[in-house]
Design a protein around this nucleic acid. Structure first.
Lengths: 119, 119
DNA sequence: CCTTTAAGTTTATCGCGATAAACCTCGTCT
DNA sequence: AGACGAGGTTTATCGCGATAAACTTAAAGG
């Protein structure tokens, strides 16, 4: 879904909402000022845009998300693998791990996630 | 390495070089025209910029890469995981797989890559 | 009433990535 | 000599994402 594509600033913004929803809009302005250094107008501008795109919602000063963080993350992860790794997860994994070493414990966790997907 | 950060257009461009190096610069102009729809000047402009950044090299009309595709991919994969998944590979994998199902064969390949990294 | 503050919209500004136009130098071919 | 193509640089243009200034409206409180 193209709908889930968020730009960097938008994603950071949405993250704050996911972490705090439901959140009052004025409170959100305060949060964004603190965490992103944004002015009030910036917060409202971005909020409005994302609302128009059906990502967020602002009803009577109560802001909530209409799409799940997981769905956006899913889109993002797919997009990178698609764009830079020919859509190949193995290629991605190989690149990511590189010479980096992981512990037995971490490996176990990863393998479990993979098992889960084999169904 | 911050040096490995390539923008979208730059990455596509570099990919063409990785796929064809060493490549004559005029030939590269032809390739970019075909694959990216670029004008000659665009190719040279980007080529020069990436050369100044030590990513590529253009010596006597012969273009080669100074950094490995793998290193750039490694940077990119790390960047996404960092930016959108708190640096957690498991989180990334979970998001990527979602409800998607993979075959036994694919799972085996992935697990092998993981094994490789356990050292 | 008058001020203050919450809540929100409309309309810029600005930097930068993406792309190209225009121009230049040299060698070679006719 | 003049044309032509290879090889390349310098200097725009342009769209867009990021951010904000300025203004508005409405409710609350003294």
């Amino acid at each position: 879904m193209e709908k889930y594509k968020l730009f960097d600033a938008e994603y950071k913004f949405a993250s704050i909402i996911w972490d705090n929803e439901p959140v009052n809009s004025t409170e959100l302005v305060r949060l964004c000022a603190g965490k992103l250094g944004w002015k009030k107008s910036t917060t409202y501008t971005v909020l409005k845009k994302l609302s128009e795109r059906g990502i967020l919602q602002n009803k009577e000063a109560v802001v909530t998300a209409l799409v799940k963080r997981e769905d956006v993350q899913k889109y993002q992860s797919n997009a990178v693998v698609e764009k830079s790794f020919d859509g190949s997860l193995p290629k991605f994994l190989t690149a990511f791990l590189g010479e980096r070493k992981i512990t037995e414990q971490e490996a176990k966790e990863l393998k479990q996630i993979i098992e889960e997907a084999v169904k």
